[in-house]
């Protein structure tokens, strides 16, 4: 009886250790977020009744956090009124690929945004991005639009006009 009980305890301990380790492995990057960031997300979503007229789907901003080494600052060229460069964040996480875009309606100082993002990512363990889902491309890339980027060095918000022309 005692041996059986000890065996159960050991199995439970192993299970808990694995769970905590896995949890730490996947979610440790979320420790970058503070209570204010969580409140910000809660408040943002409280006011959203996002829907697409065609599909009646709802899309909410949420925080996604990653190993900063898996995040690449890049750029694309959009045709939106004019043809222009826009900053992008490309992220690989396991088998998932994300592309974080900025609002196309705004004329961005792309170089300035990219420089800011690079400075924020430098020597950082994790980065968190508050964004809304838009679509999934044919190659499986999940496309999202950025509201805010955060590392332990600071944050970047799309509403900051100093990054716009």
């Amino acid at each position: 009886m005692t041996k059986k009980f000890a065996g159960i305890i050991i199995i439970v301990l192993i299970f808990v250790t694995i769970s905590v380790s896995l949890g730490w492995y996947f979610f440790r990057y979320y420790l970058t977020l503070t209570w204010n960031d969580l409140l910000f997300a809660w408040d943002d979503n409280k006011h959203v009744e996002l829907s697409r007229s065609e599909t009646n789907e709802r899309y909410y901003n949420r925080w996604l956090c990653f190993d900063a080494r898996n995040v690449e600052v890049s750029e694309g060229i959009i045709e939106y009124g004019t043809v222009r460069k826009v900053p992008l964040l490309d992220v690989k996480f396991g088998s998932s690929v994300f592309q974080f875009n900025v609002d196309p309606e705004v004329e961005w100082n792309t170089d300035t945004v990219q420089n800011r993002w690079r400075a924020m990512l430098e020597n950082q363990e994790s980065v968190c991005i508050f964004s809304v889902y838009s679509q999934t491309d044919d190659d499986g890339t999940e496309v999202r639009y950025i509201r805010r980027v955060k590392t332990s060095t600071g944050s970047w918000d799309k509403l900051d006009k100093s990054y716009q022309k």
Partner: peptide, 28 residues
């Protein structure tokens, strides 16, 4: 509380051209 965004093409870093969805977008 929302504004309209047109669907539009984007040239990606890898050289592909993808179509970005349009639709109604939340005003923060």
């Amino acid at each position: 509380g929302q504004y309209w965004r047109n669907s539009h093409p984007m040239h990606t870093p890898s050289g592909k051209i993808v179509q970005r969805r349009g639709g109604c977008v939340h005003n923060p």
